[in-house]
Design a protein around this nucleic acid. Structure first.
Lengths: 231, 231
DNA sequence: GGATGTGAAGTAGTTCACAGCC
DNA sequence: GGCTGTGAACTACTTCACATCC
């Protein structure tokens, strides 16, 4: 259903990473009861130029109105469509330490289209407790069919946990552990590394390019490395 | 000190975001007692081509040996230098929920050059408790001089907390709240948004570009939007 | 009038291919 | 022989400028 017009495929990587930002802005606009937004308003909030916003949105088909900007409801829907939020996606989270809890308890992490299927931990003190409405299971239990696995385990356990996910037929992994993972071809790993964010910020601090100084302007990209290669 | 040769300035944004990845790889190599690494080995682990690795590293000056790759110790040092890890940087964390705790307790978040100066929360049940060796202070107390502020507060409190940081002369903010912040010109905000990572992964899942399918290859970039604009 | 959507130009980043050095 | 470092070619993304449509 809703196979209306998914015309232009192949959004560029930078575009894909900006769309969720636009969507968040549009949702905020909608929450304030506003109905229209234009490319320069989105651009200012997202930290990119209005032209970039228009280019990005043009990739989703014609959805603006010349002279009047974009309808926030339509825009929100179309971005969601483009990002695949209309397709169901089961997510399992492995490792219920502070980070795992933070993710699960966040009202924000599980976006439309993603459902929390199960939580896992190896600590018997945590297994059986309820977090975010889900009972934490033992990671030694059989895993359900899931499409995305989120790894919130310590670095030294990441590869092993990853192996179990791969064996359970999970083909997409969001890895919060500061550990490069080896996976078979056909599995995507997406890394999120907080310290890298901090280091980038520190670089700009020390070089005047970011704060106080000159020209960072937008630099809005993907938060991590996505790779998939042979074992 | 150590003002040896900081020759080529202006590393490109993609390069800056890859350097911490290389550094992590090199550290892992060193921990295993290995002394040399070559560009294709780094590239494979980082998910980029060997040429890209060499280009990135060439920006730090001549530091490899033709025919023999790079010395892991030297490489580690020079990347650290380039990223400004030799310059001291005080970090304060605001909001000690699960995420704030996860960051502070992570052995990985505070990289070389960054020192945890203070922790803050508004919850009187948390204020006064000790987390990661630091006593949590009330956010209404005067703030110390810090160079980087890390926001781990709920979205609806983010702007207010941000204002306090700006008033306390913090010019670089790492914002984990899903909230676009308005800051005065001269302040850098760097956004980290977990749900965006998940959405990017879901997009690739639904389009076959990432897992199972074809061509994601590397896509290694910045995790967020950095902007600074007028109030 | 005003903002979108887009060809054309410009810029930045990556990849190729190989000279240079160990 | 092997791997670095880099000019040259290529590709991708962004920005400009403006025709187009409400």
């Amino acid at each position: 259903m809703a196979t209306a017009r998914l015309r232009s495929r192949k959004l560029s990587e930078p575009t894909i990473s900006r769309l969720p930002v636009y969507q968040r802005i549009v949702e905020g606009w909608a929450a304030q009861g506003l109905q229209r937004i234009d490319s320069s308003q989105i651009g200012e909030l997202a930290g990119v130029t209005a032209t970039t916003v228009r280019r990005d949105l043009a990739g989703l088909g014609t959805l603006g109105t010349r002279g009047a900007g974009y309808d926030v409801t339509v825009l929100n829907e179309r971005i969601g469509e483009a990002l695949g939020q209309s397709i169901h996606c089961d997510v399992i989270v492995v490792g219920m330490g502070n980070l795992g809890r933070a993710l699960v308890n966040s009202t924000n992490f599980l976006v439309r289209g993603a459902t929390l299927a199960a939580l896992y931990d190896v600590d018997s003190k945590v297994v059986g407790t309820e977090i975010g409405g889900q009972v934490v299971r033992s990671f030694s239990e059989p895993l359900p069919n899931a499409t995305v696995g989120v790894l919130c385990v310590p670095a030294d356990q990441a590869q092993e946990a990853c192996n179990r996910l791969v064996a359970a037929n999970v083909h997409a992994i969001l890895n919060f552990a500061p550990q490069v993972l080896t996976v078979p071809l056909g599995t995507a790993v997406h890394y999120v590394d907080f310290s890298i964010e901090l280091q980038i910020l520190m670089y700009h601090l020390n070089n005047g390019t970011g704060p106080l100084g000159g020209g960072v302007l937008h630099s809005l990209g993907i938060a991590a490395a996505t790779n998939h290669r042979g074992a």
